[in-house]
């Protein structure tokens, strides 16, 4: 087993141990924090497909995160108010079933990523960053100005959505759901990174001209990765809404996009558990430094600068060293 694999296992084990210890020592807050790490790590795992493997610096992933959140919030609010979503051409009711909400969140954010990606991926570099940011801001202002679902005030989910056989209001149960989804996404990323598609995506990142010269369209490969990336981040958004039992436009703000990117950079791009490690580090810092000083972001900023300057591989890069082939 390689060193990165060993460290990944260690991180996964630590993330599992934290809430169990929280339960044992009657510290429910620790369970909530661990759940947050799993969900934000999942959001980062999504972004890592585009940013890490594809080299696509998207500053618009809050759009997918927020859309996933709003799907959960809107479906739940309709179910709880017994108001159908729409009645024509057929009646569609809301739902509180996670097993229905998730696919809807994945499809909605995937379609959004398809539209945003198809337009943004015609540019590159700084322009790509700005266009993805602009699209996310459009969705953000749309959410603010649409009163039906709370507008600026957001939308509350009174009871956490349900999963068959589990009591999602039990923090450990809900953690288990998020944790398993994180591991599934990480496992799929692992397979993808070594597959034919992963080869093409990595090729597009390293040398798009080379890819085009062998007859593979870099645009289509990137768009596919961008859509998959948006889907995973959208699923994380749905879970995040359920964690907080609340959705608001802040999930869609550029600040959220920046945070998801920070998770990936902190943990290490193209590292399977990098985003989860980054999210964990971020949240631990937020709650330790945050107690010491309200200016903890300053320290985080310094840390990020140091990591980017001296350790491109993020935390996992420091611990595990350089990866082998791409």
């Amino acid at each position: 087993m390689g060193r990165e694999a060993a460290i990944s296992l260690l991180i996964a084990a630590a993330l599992l141990a934290a809430p169990l210890l929280g339960q044992a020592f009657d510290e429910p807050f620790v369970i909530t924090l661990a759940t947050k790490v799993a969900i934000l790590g999942l959001a980062g795992t999504g972004l890592n497909l585009a940013l890490g493997y594809g080299g696509l610096v998207s500053l618009g992933h809050a759009a997918f995160f927020g859309l996933g959140g709003y799907v959960a919030g809107i479906l739940a609010s309709h179910a709880l108010n017994y108001e159908p979503l729409f009645t024509w051409p057929l009646t569609v009711e809301g739902t509180t079933q996670m097993l229905i909400i998730w696919p809807v969140a994945i499809v909605v954010s995937g379609v959004a990523a398809l539209v945003i990606g198809a337009l943004s991926l015609r540019t590159s570099g700084v322009f790509f960053i700005m266009i993805t940011l602009a699209f996310a801001q459009m969705v953000y202002y749309f959410a603010i100005s649409w009163p039906a679902y709370g507008g600026e005030d957001g939308l509350s989910i009174y009871i956490r959505n349900e999963f068959p056989g589990l009591n999602t209001l039990n923090p450990l149960h809900f953690f288990a759901v998020c944790y398993v989804l994180l591991l599934v996404a990480v496992a799929l990323s692992f397979l993808l990174s070594r597959s034919r598609f992963g080869l093409a995506l990595s090729g597009a990142r390293q040398n798009a001209q080379r890819l085009a010269t062998v007859g593979i369209s870099p645009f289509r490969v990137r768009l596919t990765a961008f859509v998959l990336s948006g889907m995973v981040t959208g699923l994380a958004g749905a879970l995040y809404a359920d964690l907080n039992r609340f959705v608001s436009p802040s999930m869609l703000s550029w600040h959220t996009s920046g945070e998801i990117m920070v998770f990936v950079l902190l943990g290490g791009t193209r590292r399977l558990l990098g985003p989860a490690a980054g999210a964990a580090l971020y949240i631990v810092l937020e709650h330790t430094l945050g107690d010491v000083s309200e200016h903890w972001m300053l320290l985080l900023g310094a840390l990020l600068v140091a990591l980017v300057l001296f350790a491109r591989g993020g935390v996992i890069g420091i611990l595990a060293g350089q990866p082998r082939h791409a």
Binding site: R194, S195, R196, F197, V221
Partner: peptide, 11 residues
Amino acid sequence: RRIYRFFRPAL
């Protein structure tokens, strides 16, 4: 012509 395969390790 089979680029869009996501699961099997290419190597």
